[in-house]
Design a protein around this nucleic acid. Structure first.
Lengths: 263, 263
DNA sequence: TATAATTGTTTCATATTATGAAATTATGTT
DNA sequence: AACATAATTTCATAATATGAAACAATTATA
């Protein structure tokens, strides 16, 4: 059993520490434990263990096999673990496909996620002669901003969309920006249906954006990846459809790396 | 935020409930939260939240971004989530390959895992005219028993092997059973090297067993899958090597379904 | 650069809350 | 049926979580 005494902070909450000690009893080898198993392993009082595991069970951190009365780790831990997994693997999974996309399309590549109803840039690739994005990695924007915003919002249900638009009203970033709520919602529907977005000078003048969603094993949209092209000329690739395919392919590669299954 | 009040048990540990309330603040959308974020969302006192998250952080359930001082869910949740994932996905992932293996080889198929140093049968496929396994799903055996036991033990390190053999000494189940500890350890090494085991009447007379390990994304051996053939005649397939390939393929299919990457 | 405002950290007296011994009930074994 | 083992519940007590307030650090604003 692991020792955490080295890193100890001055703050201790006995009850919590003990609950975590109980969770620590479980492992790949020990997937099922009875009450007395846990009493023996932790050295705690029977009643204490019973009280803590009852609590952990009602909260989904443990679950009980009704027949054997034994306990195993619960679905809530799977859910929380999934969140951790998706965040630390996303950037890694996206790294190479982003660089490749930058080279193939010869344009700036952006990766963003939805954090607390805001668009947050996670990573980017920009090169000489390419469009410079005003936002640095880590910066936040309204969730309705630009190509990444539209992709991320297209996965929300209508009440969430409504809430976001109330908190961050649509702004005319450029003359071509959509500012009407209904029109915007219609656009989101379109994006959801076709699986990508082509945004022409709606966020930044003279810039066209093409973006698509990235999903993980849970099939949820966890990020949006897009590229920013100069509105006038095209760089290496002339056909817009070809670039759309490049973006979609990159997103599919990353998604499948995150455990997303196409069928 | 979810409500757990419906399922409430008479047992409550305030400190633990509050700590779990804090973890509940995090989601796919909200991956990074500051102390005050959590104070606002939970409605708890600042000091209380601070104390609880310090505790959760030292135990790896949260981690802090040093620059922003914001918190995110920690690696321990990923580990625990992985355990849950592996247990509820194993049986599902194994289901079809087991049925297929039963048909192709025309023999009884067994799936087992290591639980608390014991071999536990998770699932099986047996048909008419096939060998009947005396053990039902859920039954336990010493970890050194038969083909599945050997595969599972071959992934343990030498001190774990020693401990298991001390607790469950080798028994002469048949005249051909290995009862010498050193000979057994040598056998395990062999199994580990070749990636499968062929066991001839060592557990049950007139039964040959062929088994191989199943691994998951963490590369750990999480289960063993094997088939039991009559020692005398062979059914549909005559060549032993051919059956070995069938077993190995089934294990590889399941492993890759669990996220195991060959390279 | 000074000042205000926000956010994070620490202290400590107090009462709330977790605690565990023991009794009770349930379940499994001989 | 009698025994043994495991799970659940009760309750008086003391140990422990608590939160107000003071302090420190960081960030925003003038």
């Amino acid at each position: 059993m692991k020792q955490y005494n080295d890193k100890k902070s001055i703050y201790k909450v006995q009850a919590l520490e003990r609950a975590l000690d109980i969770l620590d009893c479980f492992s790949f080898q020990d997937r099922e434990l009875s009450l007395t198993d846990m009493v023996q392993r932790t050295g705690l009082n029977k009643t204490t263990v019973k009280r803590l595991i009852s609590n952990l069970t009602t909260r989904g951190y443990l679950q009980q096999e009704p027949q054997s009365k034994k306990y195993q780790l619960g679905m809530r831990l799977f859910e929380l673990g999934g969140i951790v997994f998706s965040s630390f693997s996303l950037r890694q999974a996206a790294s190479y496909p982003m660089t490749r996309l930058q080279n193939e399309a010869g344009a700036t590549v952006l990766l963003g996620v939805n954090m607390e109803d805001q668009l947050v840039y996670i990573d980017k690739r920009e090169g000489q002669g390419m469009i410079r994005v005003s936002s640095e990695v880590g910066w936040r924007r309204p969730l309705n901003y630009g190509m990444l915003g539209m992709v991320l919002m297209s996965s929300l249900d209508s009440q969430d969309v409504k809430r976001v638009l109330q908190q961050y009203p649509l702004k005319p970033y450029t003359p071509l920006s959509i500012t009407d709520t209904d029109a915007f919602s219609l656009r989101l529907e379109q994006v959801r249906d076709q699986g990508y977005v082509v945004e022409k000078e709606e966020a930044v003048e003279n810039v066209i954006g093409i973006a698509a969603p990235i999903r993980d094993y849970s099939r949820q949209v966890v990020a949006a990846l897009g590229i920013a092209l100069p509105a006038g000329l095209r760089n290496q690739v002339d056909d817009l459809d070809q670039i759309i395919d490049l973006v979609k392919n990159a997103c599919e590669t990353i998604s499948s790396d995150l455990g997303y299954l196409k069928i």
